[in-house]
Write a protein that binds this DNA or RNA. Structure first.
Lengths: 231, 231
DNA sequence: GGTTATTATTGATATTGATCAGTCAGGACG
DNA sequence: CGTCCTGACTGATCAATATCAATAATAACC
């Protein structure tokens, strides 16, 4: 978990456009001086459920999962998301502590700024505040929508749904390396690991997907969409 | 659907403390002059999924359900909530149109202000912006948490969970009139109506609840908690 | 490069929940 | 007061999914 401080290359940061477009160059420079970057390897945890929130964080590169632990000790994955979709946890302004954990599914870089600093900015600058609120709302809506989508489908529909999610939202490619284990897919869609595997095997047998180790190719995306829609 | 305009009794409004505590008396008066109240009878719809968002709305009194329609035409209830917990839809600042529908489960009063007006206030007044963001975050976290809680339980656990939800969060009483049909409970917890009814009958048989028509009394709340926790 | 530990896979079986069909009870209304 | 209609309820059966157990395939590690 390697940390760099103050290295300011914000000019090229994609996130700038999303939330920070309301800041002038001075404010951005100021922000840069307050930011820290953190490189994380696959598997490392970014936030722990229950930990005190002290930084505003966003994902600069990589891929993360947002999850919590159920009373029975299982992991429940809330969402999987890539850069700029993920702004800290949702609740940074309303809660003292993280509601959920976040960890890296691929090597990732997280950018962080002291929460106090962001709060001041938020209070001073209405445009920034509005941009941030919009961003957080969109993320929340996405999570809620996803959860409801999944809830309303059956096993095969859910598996098809995640495959399409990786294809479209995460990798934007019909061929990709699965960044999660079968068990993690199961934790995400709320089904048993054995049945996730079985369903993937079925898809393989029917020629809907091809599997080479961790690499998956979606061969028949229309069929997958149909299954996801009607499942 | 009866509308009153400009009647300003904001001094007594509980919502004021929640979000509007950052406004001075003038701003509040100004806000009052821009607000409209709407009385709705049980069953009436407050927002339609897909409709254009033009007002900031909050629930002054009553009880509402937030729901959407699945592709197959079933209703999927996202949450059931009482006054001050519900601030318009989440996405008022990020989306053009409502993502979900909202309708009244009991006679309700909704207070509304033109969205433009709230946006201006948001831009001008950082404290107000922060208050609003916090409120929206809390609501979102609650919805996400609830949905995850439900997802992770089995049939009996889910039914126990909603009964406890009504007891604790909605009515704060072990005796209450169910504001929803059995089918709505089913749409809420994602199970079939028949099985919801069966489970309620089981609870009745085991002496965990008593049922007099629409009225429910939770007789053994510890047992219900156990079922909810382990179910 | 062999050994060990995980993770993936599959089949058999047990549970859980959905569906279907039918009855019942209560309210709305002529 | 009867009839219609809707929501509540129940039993029987069927379908979906979980669980358990036993290998196979991979990855991790000395």
């Amino acid at each position: 978990m390697n940390e760099k401080k103050g290295v300011c290359i914000c000019e090229g940061c994609e996130f700038r456009d999303v939330v920070f477009s309301h800041l002038d160059d001075n404010s951005i420079q100021d922000l840069c001086n307050h930011k820290e970057e953190q490189s994380l390897s696959k598997g490392e945890v970014i936030n722990h459920e229950g930990e005190k929130i002290s930084n505003f964080k966003y994902l600069k590169s990589g891929l993360v999962k947002l999850y919590r632990r159920t009373p029975s000790g299982d992991e429940q994955i809330i969402t999987i998301t890539r850069p700029f979709e993920f702004v800290s946890n949702m609740s940074i302004f309303s809660e003292e502590r993280y509601q959920y954990s976040v960890s890296a599914l691929e090597d990732s870089v997280v950018c962080m700024v002291k929460l106090e600093f962001i709060k001041e900015l938020f209070l001073k600058n209405g445009g920034f505040a509005m941009g941030l609120l919009s961003k957080i709302s969109v993320i929340n809506d996405k999570i809620i929508g996803q959860t409801l989508d999944i809830r309303q489908k059956n096993l095969v529909g859910r598996v098809a749904y995640v495959l399409l999610y990786f294809t479209r939202e995460i990798y934007n490619s019909r061929v990709f390396d699965l960044p999660v284990s079968r068990k993690e897919i199961a934790d995400y869609i709320g089904m048993s690991t054995a049945n996730v595997i079985r369903t993937l095997s079925d898809f393989k047998r029917e020629g809907i997907i091809r599997v080479f180790g961790k690499t998956i190719e979606v061969a028949d995306i229309e069929k997958l969409e149909n299954i996801s829609r009607h499942g």
